[in-house]
Simulated assay, not measured.
Amino acid sequence: MQNPTSADIQRVRDFLVDLQTRICTALEQQERAGGGQAEFIIDDWKRPEGGGGRSRVLQNGTVIEKGGVMFSHINISKLPASATERHPNIAGAKAQAMGVSLVIHPTNPNVPTSHANVRLFVAKKEGQEPIWWFGGGFDLTPFYPNDEDVLTWHQTAQNLCAPFGDEIYAEHKKWCDDYFYLKHRDEQRGVGGLFFDDLNQWDFETCFKYIQAVGNGYLDAILPIFQRNQNKPYSEAQREFQLYRRGRYVEYNLVYDRGTLFGLQTGGRIESILVSMPPLAGWSYRPEWDADSAEKKLTDYYLKPQNWLQKLNQA
């Protein structure tokens, strides 16, 4: 397996820094298109152990209620359990990890919450060759979904996967469905997308091109969804349902999300780790909705893993 050089790692870092900037610029343009003026604030930080990052956060916008687009490149002197349970051979190794991770919580319940992440991990244990892999993906968590948005999201995912093999979209879509699952609720977090980890099945350059495609594909997928939905009217009841469903997002991130666990176990910067949390969320005791309501359709239809491209292209 080809090991990345310091120049390779720098190229990945350069891409990630640029990706963060381009995503923030595009989302600020959507904010302004909806009549808002909020911008991403920049917060640079360093870790005592080595490395640091740039957090960019937009709050209280007209279109985006809260959004965090985070870049980090950290050094780790001893890997935690969250990183070594799948790789016990590198327990205690030194490592570096870099990535861009984002969660965008829109104001309008008709616009889904979205998440994306691309990252590189390199570990080196004394007397052993370095071990590296890429990870990432993007997923969509709607409150009042429609078929056009789901099709846009998954068609973009399939298109970007196609140059890397006919099977990649199906494999990484299934991985996403399996990963973003709330076991205690027996419920998907959203309508899925792509998820992958431990990606080193190709040479380093091909793997790098894939995470570039995924990172760039996020904007291709989410911007049309914002444009179609951000100016739709909504009721107070729909807003309350949005907050209720955001509670599921909080449950998932605190109980299951590997990135959250990794950050906490490596002594990460808490504000950056928990920036994915929505500004407001709600919990209700055994809420009920009419059988033919949009709220009921979310859980009974859209939150069921299925072949969206086949279903919606045939509709």
Rank of each mutant, 00 (worst) to 15 (best):
A291L: 13
L274M: 12
A291E: 15
L303V: 09
I270Q: 04
L280K: 13
P305D: 02
A294Q: 13
L274Y: 07
N307H: 12
Y285T: 08
Y302T: 02
E271Q: 01
W289R: 11
D290F: 05
W283S: 13
L303R: 10
D292C: 10
D290V: 02
P279D: 14
Y285Q: 12
D292H: 10
P279G: 12
K296G: 01
D292G: 09
T299I: 11
L274I: 05
Y301N: 02
I270G: 04
L298W: 01
P278M: 05
M277R: 02
Y285A: 11
A294T: 08
S293D: 03
I270T: 11
E288V: 14
M277W: 02
S272V: 06
W283M: 13
S293R: 07
D300H: 13
I273H: 02
Y301Q: 08
G282S: 12
D300A: 13
G282N: 09
P305N: 08
P305Q: 04
R286E: 15
L309D: 09
L298D: 05
D300T: 13
E295V: 06
P279F: 06
R286S: 11
V275Q: 01
S276P: 06
L303N: 05
Q306L: 04
D292I: 00
L298M: 04
D290K: 12
P287A: 01
A281E: 04
P305H: 01
A291T: 15
D292Q: 14
I270L: 14
Q306S: 07
A294N: 12
M277P: 05
D300V: 05
K296Y: 08
A291W: 06
M277I: 02
P278A: 05
D292K: 11
S293W: 08
T299M: 10
L303K: 06
A281L: 07
W289I: 02
V275L: 09
P287E: 09
M277D: 00
S284C: 09
S276C: 15
S293I: 04
S276F: 02
L280N: 11
S284Q: 14
Y301E: 08
Y302F: 14
W308S: 02
W308Q: 03
T299A: 12
L298E: 01
S272W: 04
L274D: 00
D290A: 15
A291S: 15
A281P: 01
Y302M: 03
S272M: 03
Y301C: 05
E288A: 14
A291Q: 14
Y301S: 04
K296H: 10
D292F: 11
L303I: 03
L298G: 03
Y285P: 03
D300C: 06
D292M: 08
L309I: 14
W289D: 10
D300W: 10
